[in-house]
Amino acid sequence: MDPNALAKAFMEHYYNTFDTSRSGLANLYQQSSMLTLKGQKIQGASNIVAKLTSFPFQQCHHSISSVNCGNLQITGKQHPLKLSQVLSLSVKEPCES
């Protein structure tokens, strides 16, 4: 797969999962992963997902306009928030057969 198509497919999967079932993001992170959210550094998949599921909103929708910026619409809020996010993707080792 072409890297741009792969990045786009990954992003659609990531934000769709974020918007519908944040816990489902757990299998996209590992213990060596780090999330920096508004300056706060969070290490490891379980801590990252705990953070993402602890947000004070239940429903949201991301609309992504380019590879590193987009809008976040929170249910009940009138105006969307602009966001930028960098995701560094590493190859996942294949399962032992």
């Binding site: 780090m34 920096t36 300056g39 550094k41 560094s88």
Partner: peptide, 19 residues
């Protein structure tokens, strides 16, 4: 406005994200 950095995990590199 903002600078965030993290170790990139490969070659002792660093990711730096600026807005």
């Amino acid at each position: 406005s903002t600078v965030d950095c993290q170790p990139s995990g490969v070659n002792a590199g660093m990711l730096v994200f600026v807005s």
